[in-house]
Amino acid sequence: MTQITFKYIPFKNDAAFLQIKQTEVTEIPFYIVFFYIHVYSAIFVLLSGFTQFNSYLLKKWPLVHRNIGKLYVFTVLFLSAPSGLFIGVFANGGLYSQISFVSLSVLWFYFTLKGLLTIKNKNIKLHKTFMLRSFALTFSAITLRLWKVILVFIFHPSPMDLYQIIAWIGWIPNLLILEYYLYNQSKK
Rank of each mutant, 00 (worst) to 15 (best):
A167E: 03
V152E: 14
F30R: 06
V89P: 06
I43W: 06
L126K: 15
I124H: 01
I166V: 12
F155K: 07
D14Q: 09
T75G: 03
Y183M: 13
K7F: 11
Q22M: 06
L18G: 08
I166S: 04
A91H: 00
T75Q: 09
T143H: 13
K114D: 04
F86D: 07
F30S: 11
I169T: 07
Q22S: 09
F34D: 00
F17E: 06
Y96M: 12
G49A: 14
T143P: 12
Q19L: 04
A136V: 02
G94V: 11
N123E: 14
V102I: 13
I172M: 01
F135Q: 10
K120A: 14
T2S: 12
F135D: 14
A42P: 08
K187D: 03
F6D: 08
G49S: 13
T2G: 14
P157H: 14
T118P: 07
T129G: 05
F153D: 05
K70H: 03
L162C: 05
S134Y: 02
P82G: 05
K187L: 09
K21P: 00
N92F: 01
F130Q: 13
T129R: 15
P29M: 08
L95G: 00
K21T: 02
K21W: 03
F34A: 01
K122N: 10
E27H: 15
L175M: 11
S158W: 09
G93A: 15
L18R: 06
L144W: 04
T112C: 08
I87F: 08
N174D: 10
F6V: 03
W147I: 03
G49H: 12
R133A: 07
K128D: 15
G88I: 00
L178K: 04
W61L: 11
Y96R: 11
L162M: 01
L85K: 01
G69A: 00
